[in-house]
Design a protein around this nucleic acid. Sequence first.
DNA 1: AAATTCTCCTGAAGGC
DNA 2: TGCCTTCAGGAGAATT
Length: 268
Amino acid sequence: MPELPEVETTRRGIIPHIEGQIVHGTAVRQPELRWPVPTLEHLTGQTLRTVMRRAKYLLLHFDHGTLILHLGMSGSLRILPPDTPPQAHDHFDLVFGGLCLRLRDPRRFGAVLWTDQPPERHPLLRRLGPEPLSDTFDTNHLYTTARHRHIPIKALVMDGHVVAGVGNIYATEALFLSGIAPARRCNRIARPRIAMLVKHIKQVLTKAITQGGTTLRDFQREDGRPGYFAQSLCIYGHEGLPCPACGTTLRARSIAQRNSTWCPHCQH
DNA sequence: AAATTCTCCTGAAGGC
DNA sequence: TGCCTTCAGGAGAATT
C-alpha cells in the first residue's frame, strides 16, 4: 500500500519523464474513484511545470492550477509508451509526447482532483500536519500534541492532522525501534521517549525512500519494478514470528481499526 | 473538541 | 474444484 515513501519514490521516478512536458491528451476510463474525476480536457496543451508531494498526495503543477493525485490503497503510476493498451483498473491517463502517465488502482480508493487555487488551500490539504521529514516535525510538536490527547500513540502518529503521511507500516516499525507499545496512551509517554519516536519515524521513512519503498502486493514503481524495503521491515506483518531483537513471539491486534504488530517484551 | 464508527472497493484467503 | 463469506486498509464523513 502506498505510504509516504512509496509516493515519494513514485514522484522521483516520474519527474524525469514528465516535468516540463506538454500534455497531448487525457483519458478517464473510470470516473468513479474516491471522488468523481473531473473533466480534464483543459489540460491539453498545458505544460507540466513540477511534481511536488504533500503527505501522500502528488501535486502536478500547471500554470493555471494543480492536479492532485492520491494512490489510495492499491494505486500506482506507470510511465508507458502512449499506445500501450489499458488493462483492468487502468483508470486515468495523462498523455505527453512519446509517453503516457497511467494510474492503476484496483480498489479505487485513490483520487484525481483539480484545483485552480494554491493546493495548500485545498480542503484536503489545508489541515494537514507537518511533513514528517521536515524540521517542523520535532519533539516539541509531537510531545505537546500527545500531552493533550487520549488515544493510543499509534493512532496519534497515523493521524495526518498531527503529522502527515505516516501510515500503518512505518508507524509500526518506528514504534518498535523506539520501544513504545502501539496501544500506549499518548499522554503517558515521557518526552525523551517521544524524542526517540520522532527520530525513528524520520529514520525509517528516509531509509524506505532509499530502498524505493515497500512492496507488499500492489505497489509498483513507475517502471514496474517493486520497492525493496519489505526485506528491511523488522516486525510489520511478522506476527507469530520471533522478535528480531529478543526472540519473543510477536503479537498483533487491532488498534484504531488498524492491524498492529508489536513485541510484548521490547515495547512498553 | 475529541474520540469512535462508518464508508468506499477489490482481491485474497478461509470455510465447507 | 468451486462458490460463498470475510476482511484488510487510507482517510474523509458521520456519529456519539
